[in-house]
């Protein structure tokens, strides 16, 4: 019997914080790739302390639904799960290459596979692209020659798009910037977007000045965050000038300083994130058959009708 345990932050204040965790758990549960899918939280129930005892499998894969390596993935989660002999060195990572470590969890006296965080997996780049597609409503966004008919580019622009990946910055976690830079570089390498830049909330280059950093008239802005909350729904929209008051909402796209800002909100809410969780478990040895392919098909608007 094979169990997947998704561990996440959760919140005492914001019910939306756990929504992506639950949604992705449901998506993965529906594939049948695991005999059970459990969720555990730092701030909600079941707690990280007790989630493993709710899992009944012989092979347990723990995937942190976190953006970066750092305090939570290296210290809090292993401590709360009681991973015996845990040492961040086991991941042998400088910040973006944590894969898996197999350790006995003291809570259940059983081995578990403790995976690297979702946010630093290469497949997360695909989720950023998918979010760009969903926020513009254009599955070919950025591919200029392919998408001349798109509503998203029926503008006076040249059809090219800039892409800003937004993170907290290093003030809170020095490794969080590494995850942002990593995906920014990967997005750049696709050649699909005219400009790709990393912006931050609390350090330069700041998301507040987003329009200063791009030539492109159309700019897609996606925070590399797991869940929507205070930062992604209040701070960032106001800081970018999409709205004076987040409670009044904002347009997508919203025009700021002559640029159209396509603000996508937290990338972790994108359905395709379930795929990255599966990739993490598969990398750690989980036998998940064709679940990755099925989730990719099911969460893709272009193939949804044909999906299962």
């Amino acid at each position: 019997m094979q169990s997947l345990v998704i561990v996440a932050h959760g919140s005492h204040l914001n019910p939306d914080s756990a929504t992506p965790t639950h949604t992705h758990a449901d998506t993965i549960r529906a594939t049948g790739a695991f005999d059970e899918v459990r969720t555990g939280f730092w701030k909600q129930q079941p707690s990280l302390r007790e989630v493993l005892r709710t899992a009944r499998g012989d092979d347990i894969y723990v995937v942190p639904l976190f953006i970066s390596e750092g305090y939570f993935t290296e210290r809090v989660i292993p401590r709360e799960l009681r991973l015996e002999g845990w040492d961040p060195e086991l991941w042998d990572s400088e910040g973006i290459s944590a894969d898996t470590a197999t350790l006995v969890a003291g809570d259940i006296d059983k081995e578990v596979h403790y995976c690297g965080p979702v946010g630093t997996h290469e497949a997360m780049t695909d989720v950023l692209v998918r979010r760009a597609e969903s926020v513009t409503g254009d599955p070919k966004v950025g591919e200029v020659s392919e998408s001349a008919d798109s509503e998203a580019r029926q503008t006076e622009s040249d059809g090219g798009f800039g892409f800003a990946v937004v993170g907290h910055g290093t003030e809170r976690n020095e490794k969080s910037a590494k995850a942002i830079e990593y995906h920014t570089e990967r997005l750049r390498e696709t050649g699909r977007f005219d400009e790709v830049k990393a912006l931050f909330m609390d350090e330069e280059p700041e998301v507040d000045d987003v329009t200063d950093h791009f030539e492109s008239e159309d700019i897609i802005v996606v925070p590399l965050f797991i869940a929507d909350g205070f930062h992604t729904q209040e701070d960032i929209p106001e800081d970018m000038g999409l709205t004076d008051d987040y409670r009044e909402g904002y347009d997508v796209p919203a025009t700021v300083d002559g640029h159209r800002i396509w603000y996508g909100g937290a990338v972790g809410t994108e359905e395709l994130t379930a795929d990255v969780i599966l990739e993490r478990a598969a990398d750690a040895g989980a036998d998940i058959g064709d679940a990755i392919e099925r989730v990719r098909r099911k969460t893709n608007p272009a193939t949804q009708a044909a999906g299962d």
Partner: peptide, 14 residues
């Protein structure tokens, strides 16, 4: 019951 009251059954059982 697990969804309403997480981990309560397993702790009760222990």
């Amino acid at each position: 019951v697990e969804a309403f009251y997480p981990a309560t059954v397993v702790n009760w059982h222990r």
